[in-house]
Design a protein around this nucleic acid. Sequence first.
DNA 1: CTGTGTGCAAACATTTTGCAAGCAG
DNA 2: CTGCTTGCAAAATGTTTGCACACAG
Lengths: 150, 150
Amino acid sequence: MNSIVSLSYKELLAEFKNILKQNQLKFTSQREIILYTLYNNTQHFTSEDLYMLIKQEYPELSIGIATVYRTLSLLEENNIVSSISLGIQGKKYEIANKPHHDHNICETCNKIVEFENDEIEELQHTIAKENGFILTNHLMQLYGICKECQ
Amino acid sequence: MNSIVSLSYKELLAEFKNILKQNQLKFTSQREIILYTLYNNTQHFTSEDLYMLIKQEYPELSIGIATVYRTLSLLEENNIVSSISLGIQGKKYEIANKPHHDHNICETCNKIVEFENDEIEELQHTIAKENGFILTNHLMQLYGICKECQ
DNA sequence: CTGTGTGCAAACATTTTGCAAGCAG
DNA sequence: CTGCTTGCAAAATGTTTGCACACAG
């Protein structure tokens, strides 16, 4: 489901424009800046986070929170961004142009460390099969205390 | 963190009363019925689900949604119930008096199948350690299509 | 030009909080 | 009696929607 290799911004943008065209949707500066901001920041954003950052970095751009919600939904539907839902912190988004990974989350400082583990991925498929499920997606979050906060 | 062996309702109730006493909190019929209902139903409840079911089963009991929220938070803080947050379906609670397990969730009918897998638990500890985390908790949800819905 | 996209404000859904009355200990 | 607990309604929070104007194609 996720691409194996990271895309350059140029490629990502081309993909996005392509999706827009295929759906008779329009390429706007709000959509572009949302994509660009997600691409250039490794952090995980809530809709609010992203909205605030864009307002700050592009004071001349007119943008509303509703557009951020609408664009993130659009991007998620098209697998350009993916989201994880962190209990109390709400839903966070990140660019999906990297290999599949899961998250290690610090309960003290909320830092998120990403990791990949093929062995777990395999086990998940095995388990799903045992339960009669066709696996479409999964979510794994390891909560703990990071080195700095210990 | 979770108990290895399931508790009887009597034991669970004793534990709950104990926690209440230790915190100078009071044992009320609302709190008792919430615990009892969670214990006697294997399903996973949202606050709303639980509220509705209790209203229906105990029409004579006066209970408000706020009490359900407050009691579920109290129970969760004390590890008597645990919650999983299911994207769009919201936060769901279940009694925590069973061995640790994770969830296989059908994206079509929302059915939840529980499973345990020691190998994954071990791998999770290994991964957390590699990232410098002390693991306190984790969440793993496998989304897919169940046998009936395929 | 046409129809999609936008910001805004209102609407919604969910959860939390303040308060006065109720009741456990 | 004391003060924790309750239901209620109001408030807060997070997200979605309707609308009239803006603007991409």
